[in-house]
Structure formats: structure tokens, C-alpha cells
């Protein structure tokens, strides 16, 4: 069963990336020049990273496979945006969820 869940994660990553790419091309018509942080993408990234890394927090309610799949999907959407976009959001999201992970697991 292990392999299948990894297959699902990868598929969700790929599909998320494709969607992120398509959506970002719709949304941004210019190449990446102004270094703004997109609020929607930031929220998606934070939620995604938290779901993916801290799935043990809600494993009582939802199976980790589903949370991780959704999380990876969201991460991929932000990460897969057209070149330049989504970088800062990803880093911030990863940092926040990593802090939470360190806080809940290690301490």
C-alpha cells in the first residue's frame, strides 16, 4: 500500500503544478519583475505546507494520506507558478509549518 500512496502524492504534485502554472499565466500577464507577495498564494502555501508536514495533528479526523495529498497539491500550485512567482510564498509557508513541526514534535 505504501507505493500507491506515494504514487498519489506524486500525481497530486504534478496536477497541482500544472494547475498552478495555468492559473498563474491567467493571473499574471507580465514576467516576474515586481517583487510583491501575493496574498492568495501565501495562504495556499501556508495551508499546504502545514497540511503536508503536520498531518499528524489532525490524523485523528482525517487519514494522513488525504491531508498530505491535499497539502502537496496546494504546495505544488504555489511552487509551480510561472517563473519567479510563488517563491517567497513557498519559503514563508515552509518556514511557518517547519516552526509548527518543530514546536509540536520536538518539544
Amino acid at each position: 500500500m505504501n507505493n500507491i500512496s506515494y504514487l498519489i502524492y506524486i500525481l497530486s504534485f504534478v496536477i497541482g503544478s500544472v494547475m498552478g502554472l495555468v492559473l498563474s499565466y491567467k493571473k499574471y500577464t507580465a514576467p516576474f519583475v515586481t517583487k510583491n507577495i501575493d496574498l492568495v498564494a501565501l495562504i495556499l502555501a501556508i495551508v499546504g505546507w502545514i497540511l503536508a508536514i503536520n498531518s499528524q495533528l489532525i490524523s485523528a479526523f482525517v487519514s494522513p494520506v488525504i491531508t498530505i495529498t491535499v497539502g502537496i497539491f496546494l504546495i505544488a500550485m504555489v511552487l509551480g507558478m510561472r517563473p519567479g512567482y510563488g517563491r517567497y510564498e513557498t519559503v514563508i509557508g515552509f518556514a511557518i509549518s517547519a516552526l509548527i513541526w518543530v514546536g509540536t514534535v520536538l518539544i
Binding site: 504534478v14 514576467p31 516576474f32
Partner: peptide, 8 residues
């Protein structure tokens, strides 16, 4: 120093 293509 280039932006590069997306990972996918």
C-alpha cells in the same frame, strides 16, 4: 542567474 523553467 536565469529564472529557469518550472519543475514540471
Amino acid at each position: 542567474g536565469r529564472p529557469g523553467p518550472p519543475i514540471i
